[in-house]
Every structure is written in C-alpha cells, then in structure tokens.
Simulated scan of single mutants.
Amino acid sequence: MYRELLREWVPEKKRATYYAFIHDESECLSRLIDNVLQLARMTRNDLRLHLRPVSAGELMDRAEGSSS
C-alpha cells in the first residue's frame, strides 16, 4: 500500500528516503514477529536449545555481528 502511495504521491527526490524508512520498519517488524514466535515456543516448552561451550572471543564476535 505504501509503495503505491509513494509511486503516485511522493515527489521523486523524496522517494529513496521514504523507501528506506519503509524497509527499516519492515525489518523491525520482522524481528518483532520472530521474537513473539520464539516466546510462544518457549512458553509451550517447544523450543529446542543446543547448548555448547563457547569462548568469550567467539561470543564477542557473534555479538558484534548481530548488531549490524
């Protein structure tokens, strides 16, 4: 719906900014949905965890990689 509005109503010079905003908000919504689904699995005791020891360095590398 917003894509169609952009195509018809938003001036060309502002479209890239609006598209970027829509993309970013879509990504946030996807992460929120994933989190809700994971919480639902946890509350149903349906979440399967595969625990294994990791070094602090590996943990830091993973944390840095997930923030981008």
Rank of each mutant, 00 (worst) to 15 (best):
M1C: 09
M1D: 13
M1R: 11
R3A: 06
R3D: 07
R3E: 09
E4K: 03
E4F: 01
L5A: 14
L5M: 15
L5T: 12
R7G: 01
R7C: 06
R7Q: 14
R7P: 00
R7L: 14
E8M: 01
W9V: 09
W9A: 12
V10T: 10
P11M: 04
P11D: 09
P11I: 06
E12Y: 06
E12F: 04
E12I: 10
E12P: 03
K13H: 14
K13W: 07
K13N: 13
K14S: 12
K14Y: 13
R15G: 00
A16L: 09
A16I: 03
A16E: 13
T17F: 09
T17S: 12
Y18A: 08
Y18C: 10
Y18D: 00
Y18V: 06
Y18I: 02
Y19K: 04
Y19N: 01
Y19A: 00
A20S: 12
A20Y: 03
A20C: 08
F21C: 03
F21E: 06
I22F: 10
H23D: 15
H23T: 14
H23V: 12
D24S: 08
D24P: 00
D24W: 02
D24N: 08
D24H: 04
D24Q: 09
D24V: 01
E25F: 03
E25M: 09
E27S: 02
E27D: 07
E27M: 06
C28Y: 10
C28H: 11
C28K: 15
L29Q: 11
L29I: 11
S30I: 15
R31W: 08
R31V: 08
R31E: 14
R31F: 10
L32K: 03
L32E: 06
L32A: 08
I33F: 03
D34A: 14
N35W: 06
V36E: 09
V36F: 06
L37F: 01
Q38S: 14
Q38C: 12
Q38Y: 07
A40W: 02
A40T: 08
M42P: 00
T43W: 06
T43V: 15
T43L: 14
T43H: 07
R44K: 14
N45P: 00
N45D: 12
N45T: 07
D46Q: 13
D46I: 00
L47V: 01
L47H: 05
L47S: 06
L47K: 06
L47Y: 07
R48E: 13
L49Q: 07
L49V: 10
L49H: 01
L49D: 02
H50I: 05
H50Y: 09
H50A: 05
L51T: 03
L51E: 09
L51N: 04
R52M: 08
R52K: 15
R52Q: 14
P53N: 06
P53C: 03
V54F: 01
V54E: 05
V54C: 02
S55A: 03
S55C: 02
A56H: 11
A56R: 12
A56N: 08
G57Q: 10
G57L: 09
E58H: 08
E58S: 05
L59A: 12
M60W: 02
M60L: 14
R62W: 01
R62Q: 10
A63L: 15
A63H: 07
A63W: 05
E64H: 05
E64Y: 03
E64I: 03
G65M: 02
G65T: 00
G65P: 00
S66M: 08
S66Q: 07
S66Y: 04
S66A: 07
S67P: 00
S67A: 07
S68R: 14
S68C: 11
S68G: 08
